[in-house]
Simulated assay, not measured.
Amino acid sequence: AHTIWAHAFDLHSGTLGEGRVFASFAPRTPDQPLASYGGRPDGAAVDESGAYWVAMFEGAQLLRYAADGVLLEVVPLPVRCPTMPAFGGADGRTLFITTARDKRPADELAREPWAGAVLSLRVAVP
């Protein structure tokens, strides 16, 4: 589940074409500390330029990829478990990020008072 797939889509028939790996990430090893783990892809959104924003659950970051799969930006977050980015605001340039709190360790939650909150940041492309 550490892979994002891309598929061609036929708008007229509603069918998916052959898939390709868009991005893949190393799974966490059993003895690996969370601090050195980049996370696994969770929710995502696409901006007007076609860039793909993905929340990296347990990775404390958002990643932004160009449509061709090139990593454009890494946005560190103050929470371990972002779950979903979504664009909003009057101009579409506010990126809202939901975050998880449920079933997280107590010591992590003590360090991360924003866990379970909705975060927001301004972005250049709506």
Score class of each variant (00 low, 15 high):
Thr15Lys: 11
Thr15Asp: 14
Leu16His: 13
Leu16Ala: 08
Leu16Gln: 10
Leu16Arg: 11
Gly17Asn: 14
Gly17Met: 14
Glu18Ile: 09
Arg20Val: 04
Arg20Ser: 05
Val21Trp: 13
Val21Gly: 05
Phe22Ser: 01
Phe22Asp: 03
Ala23Gln: 15
Ala23Leu: 13
Ser24Gln: 15
Ser24Met: 10
Ser24Ala: 10
Phe25Cys: 01
Pro27Ala: 06
Pro27Glu: 06
Pro27Ile: 08
Arg28Tyr: 13
Arg28Lys: 14
Arg28His: 07
Arg28Met: 10
Arg28Pro: 09
Thr29Ser: 06
Thr29Lys: 08
Thr29Trp: 03
Thr29Val: 04
Pro30Ala: 07
Asp31Tyr: 00
Asp31Met: 08
Asp31Cys: 02
Asp31Gln: 04
Gln32Trp: 02
Pro33Val: 02
Pro33Met: 01
Leu34Gln: 04
Leu34His: 02
Leu34Ala: 08
Leu34Asn: 06
Ala35Leu: 11
Ala35Tyr: 07
Ala35Cys: 05
Ala35Gln: 08
Ser36Met: 13
Ser36Phe: 09
Tyr37Glu: 11
Tyr37Asn: 05
Gly38Gln: 13
Gly38Lys: 07
Gly38Arg: 08
Gly38Tyr: 04
Gly39Asn: 09
Gly39Val: 14
Gly39Arg: 03
Gly39Lys: 10
Arg40Ser: 09
Arg40Ala: 05
Arg40His: 09
Arg40Gln: 12
Arg40Asn: 06
Pro41Trp: 01
Pro41Tyr: 01
Pro41Gly: 02
Pro41Gln: 03
Gly43Ile: 09
Ala44Glu: 09
Ala44Ile: 08
Ala44Met: 14
Ala44Cys: 05
Ala44Leu: 12
Ala45Pro: 07
Ala45Phe: 07
Ala45Asp: 12
Val46Asn: 01
Val46Glu: 04
Val46Tyr: 02
Asp47Phe: 09
Glu48Gly: 03
Ser49His: 11
Ser49Met: 10
Gly50Trp: 14
Gly50Gln: 14
Gly50Leu: 14
Gly50Thr: 11
Ala51Lys: 00
Tyr52Asn: 01
Tyr52Lys: 01
Tyr52Trp: 10
Tyr52Glu: 07
Trp53Gln: 00
Trp53Ser: 00
Trp53Asp: 00
Trp53Arg: 00
Val54Tyr: 00
Val54Glu: 00
Val54Pro: 00
Val54Asp: 00
Val54Gln: 00
Ala55Met: 10
Ala55Val: 05
Ala55Gln: 06
Ala55His: 07
